[in-house]
Write a protein that binds this DNA or RNA. Sequence first.
DNA 1: CATATTCCAGAGAGCGCTCTCACCCGATTC
DNA 2: GAATCGGGTGAGAGCGCTCTCTGGAATATG
Lengths: 343, 343
Amino acid sequence: MGDARMVLSGRDRPTLENVAQRAGVSRATASRVVNGSTSVAPHIRDKVLSAVEALGYVPNQAARSLVTQRTDSIALVASETASRVFSDDPFFSSIIRGVSLELEAVDKQLVLMMVGPSGPSHDRVERYATGGHVDGAIIFSMHGADPLPERLSRAGVPVVCNGRVLIQSSVPYVDVDNDDAARTAVRHLLDTGRRRVATIAGPQDMSAGIDRLKGYRSAMQDSGRRSLVAVGDFTRQSGALAMSQLLGDDPDLDAVFAASDAMAEGALRALRQAGRRVPDDVAVVGFDDMDFARDTEPPLTTVRQPITDLGRMAARQVLRMAGGEQIEPVLLLPTELVKRESA
Amino acid sequence: MGDARMVLSGRDRPTLENVAQRAGVSRATASRVVNGSTSVAPHIRDKVLSAVEALGYVPNQAARSLVTQRTDSIALVASETASRVFSDDPFFSSIIRGVSLELEAVDKQLVLMMVGPSGPSHDRVERYATGGHVDGAIIFSMHGADPLPERLSRAGVPVVCNGRVLIQSSVPYVDVDNDDAARTAVRHLLDTGRRRVATIAGPQDMSAGIDRLKGYRSAMQDSGRRSLVAVGDFTRQSGALAMSQLLGDDPDLDAVFAASDAMAEGALRALRQAGRRVPDDVAVVGFDDMDFARDTEPPLTTVRQPITDLGRMAARQVLRMAGGEQIEPVLLLPTELVKRESA
DNA sequence: CATATTCCAGAGAGCGCTCTCACCCGATTC
DNA sequence: GAATCGGGTGAGAGCGCTCTCTGGAATATG
């Protein structure tokens, strides 16, 4: 007793009532001050503020949410496999950082949720999000035709997806134009005289994987050439493996478009081990423009996508939805081909 | 009206009262069923459950928290620079994954918070955590003498740090014995005949950086050799840079201990560019045993630390604290020297 | 058959906060 | 000087839930 600054165990945290009492005002007035209402006389305001200070008062969010119906937090839902796949590259971290930066600016919280590839954890997320625990959700890196976005949306939770939604759905998303970006990359290879251009595609249950392969295919078709495809899962290892396969399938290939920088780096390694020089024998183009792309040997030509911005925009969109605004169903951010030495 | 499955906008979500009414029981009984109490007659139980189903009822967490004083969520606090530093390697993701797995198992939520290197965001985190929004906090990758853990702890929030706490503090932590692990790594180099062993140290405002350097120093001292140190920041680039420096300082060095795999990989690159063969001319040992360590050229000898387990244990400890248990102030997980080809 | 014991359901009191509404009092107006 | 106005404050009703406490019915006991 006596020292108000002593350790407070959960139960006896000061309430607004305590503050009001100490300041000699009503709870209502104390609330006004805490929430920054203007219509409070300055000297009363000061009394309340010093009571807050003295008691170390912090508003109880649960109580506040209960009446305001807002929680000031947003869920970021990622599939568990995503964290595994992306453990190889900074994609995951960058998205988180983007979302985080944007939310922080408006003093909202980020609740991170991992879900396994369908199964019980889906229910968990659904229950949580619809349980009024968050004001909205950003879902990223879905595999296959995940019903989660649609389900949440239908339950009244504002949802934005990061990456094109595979199934027919009214859930808005932000993404880059993967198809077009891939086409540009492949065209660059073709334009610089490459004839046998292969691709290391991403996983075919993710829109980024599908769309980049589609872009490759259409560019090849346009120039009347045959496709040569190996599929990876965006990781370095899978890139190396895919590259060896491709080399086996067509020893004369002279270019590769990899659907991620990590796979491109794997490919670089496999090519080196196979005695091919890059770019002399084989040109390589990646996708992402991760930090490490400028340090590979040789530095990687790649398609830059603004990953952090993708996160930011997703956050911004979901906040707008939560605010009752109508938002664009599709938001595409620009990509850019960054030419370095590998192609 | 009519269709209970229509889109529910935030405001008109069904309440427990609605469920009770529809099932023809009291709110208390409905609550019992929802919370899995056993003392409810089966036929009543069924009635309630089907009412829940029909209405699509989901408990309001804010209301629940308000009375139970629990939120069933745990904050994971990371410094913003961490996400930047670790964007180069999967450390960040692995910790998150570990924590996430452990929390999921007991149906708790993970709230991720980034804080800048001191400043306003510190207050934000403090306010949030003490605002009753979480049952506990895990703080990881602190820089310098961050007062946050101590502050939260003093405010009554259960806190566990991931990584040794730099300042004198009563906040418990989980970590590996960095000092000892580094010593083992360096001794391995010495034992295999290396004479001029340099180190690429981690940032000297983080305990992992400090302790690994200390381990290196003591191993060198024990064998009567002079230290040769360059400091990096755990990233690949800084590793490459540090390696060139070291090579400039002592062209005859024959081994390097890098305080992270990412820096070791950078060093490998720098050595290659300087025309040194690994391990023939220079032996390299890393730290972490990240996935990519087995794919470097040559495969990296390194100190394995169980990063995901570190996250898991931190989560487990903070949950125990939140449950009122007393926990060990220090928990060290084992490391292991993984010998591959680089040393 | 009366009484004690058990079991289950309902009533009701809050948890800490926000927000509407009524009220008071000093300033303005006729 | 009475009526009007308006800024500033307090009273009080909930938000949706949990949990204790009470009461009634069903079962076991003397």
